[in-house]
Simulated scan of single mutants.
Amino acid sequence: MTEQRTGVSTIGLKILMGVTGLILVGYVCLHMLGNWEVFLPPVYINQYAYLLKSFPLLLWTVRLLLLASFLIHVACAARLAELRRAARPVAYDRRKPNGASWESRTMLLTGVGLGLFVLFHLYHFTWHLPPFSAFEGFTTHLSDSRRAVPDVHRMMVEGLRNPLVAAIYLLGMGCLFFHVRHGVDGIFCSLGLVNRRRFPWQRWLSHALGWILFLGFSAIPVAILAGWVR
């Protein structure tokens, strides 16, 4: 009876991880599209940021949804790891992967890396804590508003012009790349949407999405460091 309850619990945890993972990946894709406006004249990304903050109810609803999804995702991952350890309390003498990819064996590591990167990203661009306090003074005026609004374009350029900060972002995108490559594949499998005996379309999709997100986000600090975006 205990094993049956544990099995059902494991399936439920994987489904919760899959649903929350889809929510988080969907947001990351939209966030990347919004950030690409940095390649356009500054008014575009500044207008975009201003419009987002013009609807506080929607903005905070999305933030709370993302926070809840993130916490549930982490809690499910921790619980699944605990169940795996409980199922085999004695470790193997030799760890030899049996067809498991490198991404699948390092999901915990890349997940922790992503969590740390998100905290740094918030510290850097949202909270504007030292040594990034100067960002609070970066303001501009839009053509249809006399009120000063945050100059997001300048924040991104000044913030990512620092090679150390840019390197942290690239490292974070590396964690995102490997986490998404295996995670999206696992989401479809957990939800029962694939059949391993057929063409593994979900694996191709997960790898393609991983590359798109990695290259799409990484292009921004690289372009700023190279002086292509000013």
Rank of each mutant, 00 (worst) to 15 (best):
L51P: 00
L51D: 10
L52V: 12
F55Q: 11
F55Y: 10
P56Q: 03
L58D: 01
L59K: 13
W60N: 10
W60T: 10
L65T: 15
L66D: 10
A68I: 15
A68N: 13
A68T: 15
F70R: 14
L71F: 15
I72Q: 12
I72C: 14
I72H: 11
H73R: 14
V74C: 11
V74Q: 14
V74W: 13
A78E: 14
A78H: 11
L80T: 03
A81N: 11
E82F: 10
R84L: 07
A87D: 04
R88K: 05
V90P: 02
A91R: 12
Y92S: 10
D93I: 08
D93A: 12
R95E: 08
R95P: 02
N98F: 03
N98M: 08
G99S: 06
S101M: 05
W102M: 14
E103H: 06
E103Q: 09
S104N: 08
R105T: 08
M107L: 15
M107E: 12
M107N: 11
M107P: 05
V112P: 08
V112N: 10
G113M: 14
G113S: 14
G113K: 13
L116W: 05
L116E: 06
F117Y: 15
F117R: 13
L119P: 04
F120C: 11
F120P: 10
F120E: 09
L122A: 14
L122H: 10
H124L: 08
H124I: 07
F125Y: 04
F125K: 03
W127Q: 02
H128M: 09
H128W: 09
P130Q: 06
S133P: 00
A134M: 05
F138G: 03
F138W: 08
T139L: 09
L142I: 05
S143H: 03
D144V: 01
S145Q: 11
S145I: 07
R146N: 13
R146T: 11
R147C: 03
R147S: 07
A148D: 09
V152S: 03
V152I: 11
V152H: 01
M155H: 03
M156V: 15
M156A: 09
V157T: 10
V157Y: 04
E158L: 08
G159N: 04
L160V: 06
R161T: 14
R161L: 07
P163W: 07
L164G: 02
L164T: 07
V165F: 02
V165S: 01
A166T: 00
A166D: 02
A166H: 02
A166P: 02
I168L: 07
L170T: 04
L170Q: 01
L171I: 13
L171S: 04
G172P: 00
M173V: 05
M173S: 05
G174I: 00
G174H: 05
C175G: 00
C175P: 00
F177N: 04
F178R: 08
